[in-house]
Design a protein around this nucleic acid. Structure first.
Length: 214
DNA sequence: ATCCCGAGGG
DNA sequence: CCCTCTGGAT
């Protein structure tokens, strides 16, 4: 396991991320808070591109919990069949929509506890919604951020919760809000899982990862 | 620890 | 073919 990087180096890394991309954004399409929750829930173990393809039509038909319930389980399932884990996700979205109508007036709550009470919404998904919609500096740790954090030394931990704490403890507060998207985009396009594109990496000189056999 | 589960890439 | 993709529930 890599060593936790020092604060000054981490600050320099985020200074570069900010310089290269001042307003990093996610790539999951959505039109409101509700569709954001659904899109993020659907994105588990799936690519954003794949989710976007399925939700393009779905969100035209159902962009609110009431409309999703009207569409129903079978109708929803038909729209998301191309996404992995689709049966479980369809059930979750229907149940989640019912809870939003029954308990939250059809609105998306702004507390982690309430969000995590929704079926199919765990800590990671709740953190994404808190970050993207409610603009809290929540640190969602997905497969990309876990990999990037441990490879580079930016946020070292044996599991996602440890990496989340490492980010909170080591990322300068003025970069906290956008840290999620900078890290995930870096992981998606540069520090990829199989053959990381170290030649195109703007923090290569500060990174601990050693390219093995090539 | 295991199951869920399809598309895309190498 | 195998691996990866913004995980969650049991």
């Amino acid at each position: 396991m890599a060593k936790q990087m020092d604060y000054k180096t981490i600050r320099e890394i985020f200074r570069r991320f900010h310089e290269a991309e001042p307003e990093p954004k996610g790539e999951l399409n959505h039109v409101n808070a509700y569709t954001l929750v659904v899109a993020v829930a659907l994105s588990a173990q799936a690519t954003d591109a794949g989710v976007n393809k399925a939700t393009a039509k779905l969100f035209e038909i159902a962009d609110s919990p009431e409309k999703m319930l009207a569409l129903g389980l079978d109708g929803l399932t038909e729209h998301i069949k191309t996404i992995g884990l689709f049966r479980q996700k369809a059930k979750n979205v229907i149940r989640l929509s019912q809870i939003l109508v029954d308990e939250y007036g059809g609105e998306v709550p702004n507390s982690r506890a309430a969000l995590q009470g929704l079926p199919g919404v765990g800590r990671k998904t709740a953190n994404v919604v808190l970050n993207m919609w409610w603009r809290y500096p929540a640190q969602a740790v997905d497969t990309h951020i876990f990999r990037v954090g441990n490879r580079t030394g930016i946020a070292v931990g044996k599991d996602v919760n440890a990496v989340e704490r490492a980010i909170e403890d080591n990322v300068p507060v003025d970069y906290a809000l956008h840290a999620h998207h900078w890290l995930i985009l870096h992981g998606r396009y540069i520090c990829v899982a199989r053959k990381p594109k170290c030649g195109a990496c703007l923090i290569r000189d500060l990174c601990q990862f050693e390219e093995k056999t090539l």
